[in-house]
Computed example of a mutant assay.
Amino acid sequence: MPIYMDRHDIPDEIKPEHVAKMHQEDLKVQHLYGCKGMTYWCDSERHTAFCLIEAPNKEAIQEMHNHAHGEFPHQIIEVDEHLVESFLGRIEDPKKGENDDLLIIDDPAFRVIMVLEASNFINRLEGKQLSIFTQKFHQSATKAFEKHEGSIVRENDKSYLVSFRSVSNAVLCALKIQTKFKYSYPKIDSEHKRLKIGICPGMPVTDKEGIFSEAVFLATQMCELMKDEIIITSSVKAIYENENRNAVIDTNSIRVLKPREEQFLLRLVEFCELHWNSSRFNLTEMSRALGNSVSQIYRKLKKLSGKAPSVFMREYRLHKALELIHKQQGNISEIAFETGFNSAGYFAKCFRDKYGILPSKYAQLV
């Protein structure tokens, strides 16, 4: 049976004891609807509660809640139990104390999401020395995650997705990894030593499908599209400085993404996702879609990515092409036209200029 997680936005006056009683009422009637309440999370500070439920469908969850206490969830998404455990640390209720009549779980589901990208597909294929560097870096990163209580949700030889309970731990972990990365194997060409870390806070269930999908998406775009090594949202900065009264984020080593920049980045990605496979890129069309003048688009893009709009869009397409070749989804000519290039020859030139290897050669290596 599928597993779902729902979100309840709870009023200020509702305390963890109330949520525990609601969970208890769910358990009393769950069998009537073919459901099994696995556990829940309650966040008094942010006035949210999340239930993890095995159920035949979303409607059964709504009917169970309505029968038990009348509180309808604001959102329900289907989830993978392994991802839930990786992000949140458990998929069942903690053990109740011997003298406890009611299991009260005052445990927030708020997490700090880190996306780390250590290399691109190309760099993994070059040179024994680089391979040794990569192995040592990944060992060092894993130790840093463990030390700062980060839970690795997903990893490969290119990237990590990590969940932290503490903003401070996430930020300090990023700085530790950056330092290790900077001073490891200084003789290796800096072009091969690429590190990007995006950090943003999130809740497991939002209006988007997928657990922590909004936070993961934003952190990923921060990594892939911005020029800085470590990028955090303004909310991460505020929480960090609140947790560490005498500390201030060093903006020389960490880029803080302002709220208006965050909104611009999300609108930019939406535009690029709609137009990356079209050869008719038009800056005027981009400015109209994003609600900014051409000069504003140019200035904002340069500030975020360090690239002019035409270069940014070309490299966005090349990144898509890199992924398609890696997944072996078509030959080089097909991928060139699929990603908005009018000529396979021009595509090959741009690809080589960007990645230092012809796409045909790369296709042979993957």
Rank of each mutant, 00 (worst) to 15 (best):
D100I: 04
L130V: 11
E117G: 12
I132P: 10
Q129W: 09
K136E: 14
D101L: 14
M114E: 07
G34K: 05
P73K: 00
H82L: 15
N120Q: 12
A55L: 05
G34W: 00
F72N: 15
V79G: 05
F87N: 07
M114L: 07
P56L: 10
E85P: 11
H74S: 15
E98D: 10
R111M: 00
Q75A: 15
E71W: 09
D107K: 02
Q62D: 12
R46W: 10
I132K: 12
F121Q: 13
L125D: 13
V84A: 08
R111L: 05
I105W: 00
K96E: 02
A109L: 03
E126N: 13
S119Y: 11
D101K: 09
K36F: 05
G89P: 05
F121K: 14
C35S: 05
H82S: 15
H69Q: 01
H67T: 06
A49I: 03
P108A: 01
D100K: 05
E45G: 10
H47D: 06
H74Y: 13
A68F: 00
D93E: 11
F72G: 12
N99K: 08
L116N: 01
L102D: 00
R124I: 13
E117C: 09
V84E: 08
D100F: 08
R111N: 03
H65Y: 04
E59R: 09
E98K: 08
K95N: 09
Q62A: 11
D101Q: 10
E126G: 11
G70M: 02
H74M: 14
R124H: 12
S119P: 10
P108E: 00
K128Y: 13
F50D: 02
H67L: 07
G127L: 03
L52I: 03
I122V: 15
R111F: 02
L130W: 09
L116I: 06
G70T: 01
I91H: 11
Y40V: 01
D43G: 05
D80Q: 07
Q129Y: 11
A118W: 11
E98H: 09
K128A: 13
T134D: 14
D80P: 06
E85K: 15
E126S: 12
G37A: 08
A109F: 02
S131I: 05
R90A: 03
H65N: 02
A55I: 03
E85F: 12
H74W: 12
E92L: 08
I53Y: 07
G34I: 04
L130I: 08
H69V: 01
H67W: 04
E81V: 14
L130Q: 12
K96P: 03
D43F: 02
I61R: 01
R90Q: 01
S86M: 15
I91W: 13
C35T: 00
P94M: 04
D80A: 02
I105D: 00
I53L: 11
K136Q: 14
S44Q: 15
H138E: 13
S119N: 13
S131D: 11
S131M: 07
K96A: 04
K136R: 14
K136T: 11
